[in-house]
């Protein structure tokens, strides 16, 4: 049975046996390149669920923000490896209770980045997409292309080492555990090896593109502060313009706020309308956190998030320089 069929069957059982009040999954949307979140409350609705390369949305976003209405319900949720870490982080940070969520893992081979598909079609509009596993076929007016899956994956997927949920109640296939990934560090090492001035220049150019729409923060399941520092005006922490002096500060601070909390799902980068590389810095900080505190955000349901914990023998170098 393929993942989609398996998923539908599981959701149906959960709904019909009243194990959940609501199930969060994905369904085909109005555009071919992105699935859309599906809210299942009846067995019929379960038949609309899908899982394929278009299912990028990290659905745990619906546990935080003003969607907190789900917090007291029994909610089932379909998760890729990164999404599962968000759910776990939400549990560890006491946004939801473990007993209130039914976690259904799906075996993930990566999700697409719209921008990469459009680069492959040279900007031509895609009207139809088929996920064939190793390849993805896209069709538009007067063209049909078979694309290598690797070529169109989100950068978060290229750097992924936990493609499957580590914490789950049901798994739609076989969970793979940790998958070694050399690519993960390459971009960061290359960047680190640049002279200071080039690093600064690259950072400035990248963050200068920011239009301060905050879509990155708003789609981030880890960014749910009641009042974000960028929105405070008394005291005002940073300037609000699109000058790079302001945008760089915004991104550096956000980067540090999600230290030990970013699950590297890539939701921010896919949502960014300006195509800004947001993940590299987050990944760098995640590696730093792992190195110094031995913690990977949202991996261990019995653990404690690095920033909420203190051990006497903790390495202090990160802060002390």
């Amino acid at each position: 049975m393929n993942t989609t069929d398996n998923l539908r069957k599981t959701i149906k059982t959960l709904v019909s046996e009243k194990k959940v009040d609501l199930f969060l999954g994905w369904e085909k949307g109005s555009l071919p390149l992105a699935a859309t979140p599906l809210f299942v409350t009846t067995e019929e609705e379960a038949d609309r669920a899908i899982f394929d390369v278009t299912c990028g949305n990290n659905l745990s976003i619906y546990f935080t923000k003003d969607k907190k209405q789900y917090a007291d319900k029994k909610v089932g949720i379909a998760v890729k490896g990164c999404d599962a870490r968000s759910v776990v982080l939400n549990i560890l940070e006491k946004q939801i209770k473990r007993e209130n969520v039914v976690i259904v893992g799906v075996p993930c081979n990566g999700v697409l980045d719209k921008k990469k598909v459009l680069a492959a079609t040279e900007g031509r509009e895609v009207l139809e997409l088929m996920d064939n596993g190793d390849t993805v076929t896209v069709k538009g007016k007067g063209f049909e292309l078979s694309l290598n899956r690797q070529e169109i994956l989100s950068s978060s997927c290229h750097a992924c080492i936990y493609p499957d949920a580590q914490e789950y109640d049901f798994f739609m296939g076989e969970a793979r555990g940790e998958v070694p990934n050399e690519e993960r560090v390459k971009e960061i090492v290359d960047f680190q090896n640049l002279p200071d001035s080039d690093r600064w220049e690259q950072t400035r150019v990248e963050y200068q593109k920011c239009i301060r729409c905050y879509a990155c923060r708003n789609v981030c399941p880890s960014c749910y502060c009641n009042v974000c520092f960028v929105d405070q005006n008394d005291p005002k922490w940073i300037g609000s313009t699109c000058e790079y002096t302001d945008t760089v500060i915004f991104h550096v601070i956000r980067n540090l706020h999600v230290a030990g909390r970013c699950v590297e799902c890539g939701a921010c980068e896919r949502a960014c309308p300006m195509d800004i590389n947001l993940l590299m810095m987050n990944r760098k900080v995640a590696m730093e956190v792992k190195d110094r505190f031995g913690d990977v955000a949202g991996l261990d349901i019995d653990g404690k998030p690095a920033m909420s914990d203190f051990k006497e023998d903790e390495k202090q170098k990160f802060i002390m320089g």
Binding site: T36, I61, Y62, K65, D66, I211, C213, A215, N218, A271
Partner: peptide, 20 residues
Amino acid sequence: AKCINCGACTFSCPTCHCYD
């Protein structure tokens, strides 16, 4: 139900014109 209030729609819209 599915809107996450990210604001990307209003920032890219040619007619949205609210400001602070």
